[in-house]
């Protein structure tokens, strides 16, 4: 080896790789972790690192009492996945069983039947109910080798939750959050070609299931809000809401004083909500992005969704808060709370 090549090799070998930091970055980037975010720059728009493509694999292990087990045993799964899931663990999906679009697309391969049961596209999120009929034990929370995609539209976020159903197999819900660049389409095509289902340990069933179906956007009532609240150099601008029979989507922007970013690296505005009847709601966001002409890279636009809004509620009260974080030196973060914003429904 020549001296020059030895220098190249030694130089590269001498670079110490901070493996733990790299793994932390990977973890943070792939999974949502408020306040622990590295910045992402894009030429035109900027999608949030932590929200982008987070795969939410939630445990399906549920402890049922005997009465509940009996009730659940009476619910047929095919055609009723939303009912089953809402009765079992997620009451917020109760109305989905009545109002979601029937898909009833069944594919059988290698003795395993996968059915995409019903679906909803509310303008920000595609929610699908799905079941797996199998005698194989894939543990409590099996995983597909791939999640569905949307034709011609990239995803910014997606995830699923499968629950074990005794004597049947598994049932669950898949959520997909498309990354719309401009307008939101009136309908879209879902494509899904899983080739394997894996259990938590070594179980794996290979097959070839092919799904391709259209979903129309649900009718929505758009209401312009245009209300602002500010605190500690951060302004939350709630722009509009879009309400369907199943969801209330809230569109808002965070505006950050550039001086704040001399000390802090990242700002992430979120909210909780309550209604005039005393119900309290989580408002998980669907993802955010920054326009190319934003004043600061943290001036992000968000959408967030309430799923189980009480039909008798006439007013919703948003409780915004923001997590501001410093990531470059000693990672630290703090919460900034804002005044409430009331919205008549």
């Amino acid at each position: 080896m020549t001296d020059e090549k030895k220098v190249i090799k030694k130089t590269m070998d001498d670079i110490t790789v901070p493996n733990q930091k790299l793994e932390n970055i990977l973890e943070r980037t792939f999974k949502k972790n408020v306040g622990q975010r590295y910045k992402k720059r894009r030429r035109t728009t900027r999608y949030i690192a932590t929200a982008a493509l987070a795969i939410l694999l939630l445990s399906g292990t549920v402890a049922f009492n005997p009465v509940m087990a009996n009730v659940l045993g009476q619910i047929p799964i095919i055609g009723n996945v939303f009912s089953y899931i809402s009765s079992a663990t997620k009451p917020e999906y109760n109305k989905f069983s009545q109002l979601a679009t029937p898909i009833s697309h069944t594919e059988e391969s290698n003795g395993v039947i996968i059915t995409t049961d019903q679906g909803v596209f509310d303008g920000t999120t595609i929610t699908l109910s799905v079941s797996i009929q199998t005698k194989e034990n894939l543990g409590d929370s099996p995983m597909f080798d791939s999640i569905p995609t949307i034709k011609d539209i990239p995803l910014s976020n997606g995830g699923y939750n499968l629950e074990k159903v005794e004597g049947f197999g598994y049932a669950g819900i898949i959520q997909l959050k498309p990354q719309f660049d401009e307008s939101i389409p009136e309908n879209l095509t879902v494509i899904w070609n899983p080739v394997a289902i894996e259990g938590a340990t070594s179980e794996r069933i290979e097959g070839d299931w092919n799904f391709n179906f259209n979903l129309e956007k649900a009718q929505e009532n758009i209401q312009l809000i245009n209300k602002l609240v500010s605190n500690e150099g951060i302004t939350i601008h709630v722009k509009e809401t879009r309400q369907t029979d199943l969801t209330l989507n809230i569109f808002y922007q965070q505006l950050v004083d550039p001086n704040l970013l001399n000390e802090w690296t990242a700002v992430e505005a979120e909210m909780m909500a309550s209604d005039n009847l005393g119900n309290v709601y989580e408002v998980p966001y669907n993802g955010g992005f920054a326009d190319a002409d934003a004043q600061t890279p943290e001036d992000l636009q968000w959408s967030a969704t309430i799923k189980d809004l009480d039909p008798n509620a006439t007013k919703i009260i948003l409780h915004p808060f923001a997590t501001i974080s410093r990531l470059d030196k000693e990672p630290t973060s703090k919460i900034v709370v804002f005044d409430e914003i009331e919205i008549e429904l």
């Binding site: 795969i55 597909f144 999640i147 995803l155 997606g158």
Partner: peptide, 9 residues
């Protein structure tokens, strides 16, 4: 699998 959308892969 990653190309098909499997983020864990």
């Amino acid at each position: 699998r990653a190309i098909k959308g499997d983020q864990l892969a």
